[in-house]
Design a protein around this nucleic acid. Structure first.
Lengths: 342, 342
DNA sequence: CTGAAAGCGCTTACAG
DNA sequence: CTGAAAGCGCTTACAG
C-alpha cells in the first residue's frame, strides 16, 4: 500500500481534476461545490474525476479566499483537571458534526502561554475561540484585542459584555437539598469543599435557601467548608455524627468528599441509606458508581456546557450579538445512597 | 476596547505593513522572516510598522506556498477514558513548544467517524497525524492511503511497518513484583483486571517471570483475572485472604482494584503495610493519594508516551524513516502501602 | 540591498 | 452552461 502512495506523492489539485474531466477549473470548482450553473452530465464527469484522484479540496486555499477557515480554537487552562475535559468533549462534538475543525491549546494556567497560543491561533485565522476554565470563578477576559468572537465556558469572563456559559451551582445546591427533603430527611449537613471556590459558596447558598424554604436550617447552622478530598469528607463526617447524632442526611460538595463521608459512616456503624442519606456532587462515574452503596450525585452537564458554548460561538461567528453569563441547569442522578424513608 | 476593534476590522496584511514602512512587500516579507539580504535600518522600520499594525502573518497563505502548514492532527478513539488524556497532553506539550498547532478529533471509537476526521484533516493539509488509543491492544492501521506520516500512541498499530509508541507493561509487571520482593514479601497475589486486555496479560507475564526469577510463584499459581473495578478488588481480596491466609503482598492491576483490595483487607483486620503490602497500577492521583494508606502505584508515564510520539512524528515529517513498536518504561511511585518489612 | 513578477490552490464575478 | 481572468496573502527566485 505504501508503494502506490509514493507514486501519487503530490495531492491532487482542482487543476488535475479539471484536466481529467476535460473542463476548466472554474467549472470543476462549481461542479464540486454544488453550484447550480453546471450541466448534470458535466457535474457527473467532474465528480467521477475527483473520486478517481481522491481529490480533497485544499482547505487553506479555500480559507484564504473566503473569509472563513472553518476552524476554531479551544483554549483550556488545564487539561489535567477533570472539569475541562467534558466541556471540551461537548464542544468538539458540536463542532465535529458541523465540519468545523478544532485547535486544542493548553495554556497550563499560564497567562504568557495563553497569549502565545492566541497569537498562533489568530495567525491561523480561526473563526472564533472558546476559552475553557476549570472553576466557576470569573476569570479576566483575554488580554489584547482579539478580532474574532470569544465564548467562555465553565469559567465565565469577569467582563459582563463577554459571552459566558457555565453551570448553575446555586440551583444545584437547592436541587440536592430538595432531593434529601423528598427522601424524608430533616437533619441535613452540608460538607463543602474549599471555601475559596465560588462553586462551593454557590452550592452553599442554594442549600441554605432550600432548607429555609422548608422552614429548616442546615445542621450546625452553616456549611462545613474544608477541602475537595476524601480525607476531609471522612473527618467532617466523623465530627458531625458525633456532635449531631441525629443527622440524617449529608450533602457533599464533591464525590470525593462523599466517598470519605460514606467510609466514616460505615465505620461509625450508621447505615446508608436506611439510617442516613448521602448525596455527592460531580457524578464522577468512577467514584460514584463504585461507592458502597452506589452514590446519588449531581451532574453539572458539562458536555452540554461545551455544546452550548459551541452553539453560541457559531451564532457569534454568524454575526449574532450576545452578552452575559448563561447558567445551565444541573441534573440529579439517583443511585442507592438516597432512598425515601420507608 | 471593542471600539477600536471595529475600526481595524480587517486584519493587517503584509501589504499594509509594506506601505506603512515604505518598502515593497517582498522586502517586508524578508525583513519579517529574518532573511539576510535586508539592511538593518530597513528591517527595523518594517518591524516597527508590523508591531504598530499588530501584524500577524496569515498562516494559510504561508502554508499554501510552502509545503508545510505547521499543523498536526491528534486522533483519539475516546476522550472519555483516562488513558488518552495524558498522552494527548504530552503530545500537545511537545508540539506547542515548537510552533506546531494541534487539531483535536475524537472518533468516539467509531471507524466511520475516524474516516470522516481523517478526510477533514487531510483537506486542511496537516503535516502528520498521531493516533491515540485507549488500550494497548494493537489496532488496525488507518484505512485508506494517508499521504502524511502517522504515529500510533499507546494503542500500537497492528502493522509492524507503522511507527508505534506504547508503554512496556511486561516490564511494569516485573517492576511491581520486584518492589514487593524488595519489601520482603514472598506470598504475593496478582489481582488482575479484565483478561481481555493485553495490558492485563502483559503485566501477568512480567509478574510471573519476576516471581520465577526469585524461585517463587504467585499465590494460587496464577493471576486472578476479573474486571477493572473496585468491587472486583474487594471480592478477590476477600477470597484470597480466606484461601491463602499467609498472603503478604498484593499486586493490583489498577488503582481501582487496589482500592477495593485495601477496603477488604481493612475489613478483614489485616494491616497494610505492616502485615501486607499492596501496590496498584496507573498512579491515578485521585485514587492513589487518597487511599488509606496512600497507595504505591506504577505510573505508565503516559505524558512521555505522548511526547515521544510527537518527537517521532517530527522526525518522520523531516523525512526520517522508522518503523516498529517502541515500548517506553514505566516507573514506580512509592507511597505508604508498601514498606520494607522491619 | 531592493523590488517586480510568478505562483501556491482555490472561488467568484464577468463575458461569452 | 462554460471558461478566462482576477485575486486571497504570502514567499521565492530573479533582475537590477
Amino acid at each position: 500500500m505504501a508503494a502506490e502512495d509514493a507514486a501519487s506523492a503530490r495531492a491532487a489539485t482542482l487543476t488535475d481534476v479539471a484536466r481529467l474531466a476535460g473542463v476548466s477549473i472554474a467549472t470543476a470548482s462549481k461542479a464540486i461545490n454544488g453550484r447550480a450553473q453546471v450541466r448534470a452530465e458535466t457535474r457527473t464527469r467532474v465528480l467521477e474525476a475527483a473520486a478517481q484522484l481522491s481529490f480533497a479540496p485544499n482547505a487553506l486555499a479555500r480559507g484564504l479566499l473566503q473569509g472563513r477557515t472553518g476552524t476554531v480554537g479551544l483554549l483550556t487552562s488545564d487539561l489535567e483537571g477533570r472539569f475541562s475535559i467534558p466541556v471540551l468533549m461537548g464542544a468538539e462534538d458540536a463542532f465535529g458534526a458541523g465540519q468545523v475543525s478544532v485547535f486544542l491549546c493548553d495554556a497550563r494556567g499560564d497567562a504568557i502561554r495563553e497569549q502565545h497560543h492566541i497569537r498562533a491561533l489568530l495567525s491561523r485565522r480561526v473563526d472564533g475561540l472558546i476559552v475553557v476554565g476549570s472553576r466557576t470563578d470569573p476569570r479576566p477576559p483575554l488580554a489584547g484585542d482579539v478580532p474574532v468572537p470569544v465564548v467562555y465556558a465553565y469559567a465565565p469572563s469577569s467582563d459582563p459584555s463577554d459571552v459566558s456559559i457555565t453551570a448553575n451551582n446555586v440551583d444545584a445546591g437547592r436541587m440536592a437539598i430538595d432531593h434529601l427533603l423528598a427522601c424524608g430527611r430533616r437533619r441535613i449537613a452540608y460538607v463543602a469543599g474549599d471555601p475559596g471556590y465560588k462553586a462551593a459558596q454557590d452550592r452553599s447558598q442554594g442549600a441554605s435557601e432550600a432548607m429555609a424554604a422548608a422552614g429548616l436550617e442546615l445542621v450546625g447552622g452553616r456549611a462545613f467548608f474544608g477541602a475537595w478530598s476524601e480525607s476531609w469528607g471522612r473527618g467532617a463526617a466523623r465530627t458531625i455524627v458525633e456532635r449531631y447524632p441525629d443527622v440524617d442526611g449529608f450533602f457533599c460538595g464533591s464525590d470525593q468528599i462523599a466517598r470519605g463521608v460514606l467510609d466514616s459512616l460505615r465505620e461509625a456503624g450508621r447505615d446508608v441509606p436506611d439510617d442516613i442519606s448521602v448525596i455527592g456532587f460531580d457524578n464522577w462515574e468512577v467514584l460514584a458508581a463504585n461507592a458502597r452503596p452506589r452514590l446519588t450525585s449531581i451532574d453539572m452537564n458539562l458536555e452540554e456546557v461545551g455544546r452550548v458554548a459551541a452553539q453560541r460561538l457559531f451564532a457569534a461567528i454568524d454575526g449574532e450579538r450576545g452578552a452575559g453569563v448563561e447558567e445551565l441547569p444541573c441534573r440529579i442522578v439517583t443511585r442507592e445512597s438516597t432512598t425515601p424513608v420507608a
